[in-house]
């Protein structure tokens, strides 16, 4: 089958690749563009480990075809840190011990980032709803909830 070209902005950089038609965005990111931060947990949209942002909206990259992303702005967890300086969510996940095996972490952080961008001062129920599409096996979720609340507090403190 002839390959087709896909071109989009990934974490601020213009990227272009040739992929088989039907290639998922997850596969294109991981196998072609060397961004392994989105994880393939279930490949059917049930676990949230592959969550990325496309044009500011949360999307499951395992259910998104790469060829539908032409011209899009795509953000992944790999693009959150500013050089050596971690994103407040990344720092909060570290400080709150919100990861064990870490497989769900990139998806959790993207879900949380989307929440904080539209609601900088979420309460616990907002956080629970924001991460309810993401499965975690290790932490029992509570440390993740606390980490997101911690990041929100850190943001509001630094903004003040």
């Amino acid at each position: 089958m002839a390959k087709i070209s896909v071109q989009f902005t990934l974490n601020g950089s213009e990227r272009a690749e040739f992929v088989e038609s039907g290639t998922t965005l997850l596969a294109a990111l991981r196998d072609k563009m060397d961004d392994t931060s989105p994880k393939g947990g279930c490949h059917q949209g049930a676990c949230g480990a592959c969550t990325v942002m496309i044009d500011g909206e949360l999307r499951l990259s395992c259910l998104t075809l790469a060829e539908t992303c032409n011209g899009a702005q795509i953000r992944t967890t790999a693009g959150l840190a500013n050089g050596e300086v971690l994103h407040p969510l990344q720092r909060a996940f570290e400080d709150a011990f919100a990861a064990q095996c870490g497989f769900c972490t990139p998806g959790m952080i993207m879900a949380a980032a989307a929440l904080l961008e539209r609601n900088p001062n979420p309460d616990r129920a907002d956080v629970v709803e924001a991460i309810s599409g993401n499965v975690c096996r290790c932490t029992g979720y509570e440390p993740i909830i606390q980490a997101v609340l911690l990041a929100a507090r850190a943001n509001s403190t630094s903004a003040a």
Binding site: C42, Q44, A46, C47, V127, V128, E129, I131, S132, V135, R137, G140, Y141, E142, I144, I145
Partner: peptide, 14 residues
């Protein structure tokens, strides 16, 4: 067969 059928408490069930 998958996370839809294998149940676990989610963040809203803690």
């Amino acid at each position: 067969r998958d996370y839809n059928e294998y149940l676990m408490p989610g963040p809203g069930d803690l």
